[in-house]
């Protein structure tokens, strides 16, 4: 209950920042997503109540855009670039390998909440294709061979090593 109250307060604060401007819905959802790394249902309900926008509209916008997720994301979000250059350099095989190694499908999160795997539109890093972005770090010229090592590096970070 307590967490819900804090979440409500936090969301109210975000809405207030935009002065309840209904056109700021996308921006407000972005701020909420930044805060919680996904859009919790309670947050959407608070936005709906605070901004007097029908829940169906809030939900429509929240699901339309790729930047938003309705489910909690992993601590490390692995995004495989699926731009044309990365595609011709074998980007899809990287995605397959991540899915296989982590035993999840694209768009899903591992049970321990550590990794999410997703595809992302062209990042404009075509000169170092194929690339994979993990949170804010772009890994250039990735190969399937390197994937186990990359995953191990991030797993080690979990334990603060």
């Amino acid at each position: 209950m307590n967490t819900e109250n804090t979440m409500q307060d936090k969301v109210k604060e975000i809405v207030k920042k935009y002065k309840g401007d209904k056109s700021a819905l996308v921006a407000i959802l972005q701020d909420v997503q930044d805060e919680y790394r996904y859009l919790p249902k309670e947050a959407l309900l608070t936005i709906h109540e605070q901004m007097d926008i029908p829940m169906a509209r809030v939900y429509e916008v929240a699901t339309f855009y790729d930047a938003f997720s309705l489910t909690p994301r992993g601590r490390f979000i692995i995004e495989v670039c699926t731009g044309t250059t990365c595609h011709v350099q074998g980007g899809m095989n990287l995605l397959d390998t991540f899915e296989r190694s982590l035993r999840i499908n694209c768009g899903e999160t591992t049970e321990d909440g550590l990794f999410s795997v997703d595809r992302v539109g062209c990042l404009g890093c075509c000169s170092i294709a194929p690339v994979v972005r993990v949170n804010d770090t772009i890994h250039p010229q990735m190969t399937q061979d390197e994937i186990p090592r990359v995953l191990r590096t991030y797993m080690a970070k979990r334990y603060g090593r």
Binding site: L44, P54, M55, A56, V58, Y59, E60, T63, F64
Partner: peptide
Amino acid sequence: GVSALGFAFRGVDKALGTPYREPSPA
């Protein structure tokens, strides 16, 4: 004037219904 129904997602995944596919309070 209640907006209980709406769309979700886009493209080939576009779906029609109430938010979270749950009965809508609206």
